[in-house]
């Protein structure tokens, strides 16, 4: 059972590792470089998120994250709804070595 992605941009691709705050910035594992949510003209290996892989994530990690909603999701059915609304769901984030420096004093 496959979930078919409608809009074929980087952020719909399973090999796109998004930045945790700006979803239009990401790391393309395929090309090994930063991409800015382009239509994947330069690539023909768009990988799709499968229901199987999603449910295995819930079985191992226990959560996925919706960058649009800025929230973790803990149930499969819930995740499906976000995907249906074209939200960007991920469990991995592009490595950001400077975010920590941008945090104000919080506690």
């Amino acid at each position: 059972m496959y979930y078919i992605v409608m809009n074929m941009n980087c952020e719909d691709c399973g090999r796109y590792i998004p930045h945790s705050v700006y979803k239009y910035i990401g790391f393309c594992e395929e090309q090994g470089k930063v991409v800015f949510n382009e239509p994947p003209t330069n690539c023909d290996t768009v990988s799709k998120t499968t229901m199987d892989s999603l449910s295995s994530v819930f079985g191992s990690l226990g959560w996925v994250y919706c960058i649009d909603c800025k929230a973790p999701i803990f149930e499969m059915e819930e995740a499906v709804k976000h995907i249906a609304s074209h939200h960007l769901i991920t469990t991995r984030f592009m490595y950001d070595s400077v975010a920590a420096e941008e945090v104000g004093a919080v506690s």
């Binding site: 945790s20 990690l61 959560w63 994250y65 469990t91």
Partner: peptide, 8 residues
């Protein structure tokens, strides 16, 4: 934070 281990 997105991805925090606390989610698990």
């Amino acid at each position: 934070c997105p991805g925090c281990g606390n989610f698990g």
